[in-house]
Write a protein that binds this DNA or RNA. Structure first.
Lengths: 240, 240
DNA sequence: CTTGAATCGAGAGCAGCGTTCTTTCATAGG
DNA sequence: CCTATGAAAGAACGCTGCTCTCGATTCAAG
């Protein structure tokens, strides 16, 4: 019936793929200037010298274009996080933790609109079908890897005296353990989720203005203290 | 020159105030259905049987209307938080803490679009001039009050072994101490800010879909565990 | 090489939007 | 009663997302 374009990459398909990424580039530029609500399909088309209706050959709607940018944003922060982690010696677990946390903050401050796209209000009604799921998990994967490595090295000594994970969390902890956390116990898995949540909570508060006239002086130091607190709770300790 | 409407509340002004609040009501209804990006001045006007340009007698722009809704949302969550706190015996500090945290979460889940308005991406370029500042501080005021009361009752025993606040935070801690935290030391003030940040971080992650296929089973229990963890770190302990 | 199908760019057009301006109108105050 | 003032209406501008049609181009199979 239809083409079934099995394996051959025709010239048409190559130029099409290139145009798609060109559209995304321009759209990302516009996003950085005007924010998500100001992203206009027509303006993107104008910048590309095409007519607005032509964009619809490549993205079925404005929201689809936004979804593509969301996925790219998740990938970008994931890449930044992985790079920060890779730049540390693998056995310096606390250093890796701090580097990853700082990487998240720095990337977010440098790309506020893209950050708002992935951690702000869902733009239309709901996007994020499932395409974003794997991209969104990259930073969590890195953080979990640090904890895994620390545990394997026998250098994870979680704080005591904190409330345990609820029993109803056990099944999900088991799934997460199989996917990410190796041998770590439920309590630590939940604390890791809490730390992950917390880091983005701090970044969101900073970016969305909740710290205005509350923390202004030395936000990097405060952020470091908060990231270090989470590491301490999880049991990552400083090395000589 | 102009009216100078000194003290008398004329009939004109009364009907004007009523119309303003009617516009906000309809706008809030639309917000709950379509979200912030779908709030249309023309649609609001239609619902009110007026023509779109008439709205501009009451709100100079769509963003001003949104700002009014933002302030109302802050007030609503502030009121919910104060009510939850007031419903607890004043000396049951941990109960008050948990009640306040739960109130924040419940209000947010019940009013997701208004939550997105105040804790999601800033809608236009930047709103939130200063009008929102006092409204935004109400929940923090309540949380700080609980810690203050616990401290005065000698029932605040913060966890040890956590990193201290950076020195650069001292001046801002002093300001916060004068406004909110009475005698509490810098470390605890920063932990309180962290807890405040953290609670909203959890709510944001839950509302914006970050816990999808991660925590699905018993979110209230997980939230309680997280709120209790923060209370424990701050030094609020259970009573008989 | 030719022909038919698929893809693509262009353009017009629709309905909706925020915002401004000008005109009309009711009414409150002197 | 008359006038100044606030409110409402309506038209208009330029923008938006999106749809549809219509030639032109490309591609592959006959």
């Amino acid at each position: 019936m239809v083409g079934e374009m099995n394996a051959s990459r025709t010239a048409r398909e190559r130029v099409r793929a290139e145009l798609i990424s060109e559209i995304k580039d321009v759209a990302r530029r516009h996003l950085g200037v005007d924010g998500a609500s100001g992203l206009s399909l027509r303006a993107v088309a104008r910048d590309l010298g095409m007519v607005s209706s032509a964009i619809y050959r490549y993205f079925p709607s404005r929201d689809e274009l936004l979804t593509a940018l969301i996925i790219e944003a998740f990938d970008a922060v994931g890449a930044a996080v992985e790079a920060a982690d890779a730049a540390c010696p693998r056995d310096r677990h606390l250093d890796r933790w701090m580097a990853v946390c700082r990487a998240i903050r720095v990337w977010s401050l440098e790309n506020p609109h893209e950050y708002a796209l992935i951690h702000g209000s869902p733009v239309p009604g709901y996007v994020a079908p499932q395409d974003t799921a794997s991209a969104a998990a990259r930073d969590g994967f890195v953080l979990a890897g640090i904890l895994r490595d620390a545990r394997e090295a026998g250098e994870l000594t979680p704080m005591t005296g904190l409330p345990p994970a609820p029993e109803s969390f056990a099944p999900e902890a088991q799934l997460l353990r199989e996917a990410l956390f190796a041998e770590l116990p439920d309590d630590i898995i939940l604390r890791a989720l809490a730390a992950w949540t917390y880091i983005y909570g701090v970044v969101s508060f900073e970016l969305f203005g909740m710290y205005k006239s509350v923390i202004e002086n030395d936000r990097p130091a405060v952020f470091d203290q908060m990231a270090l607190t989470q590491a301490t709770i999880l049991g990552l300790t400083a090395k000589p």
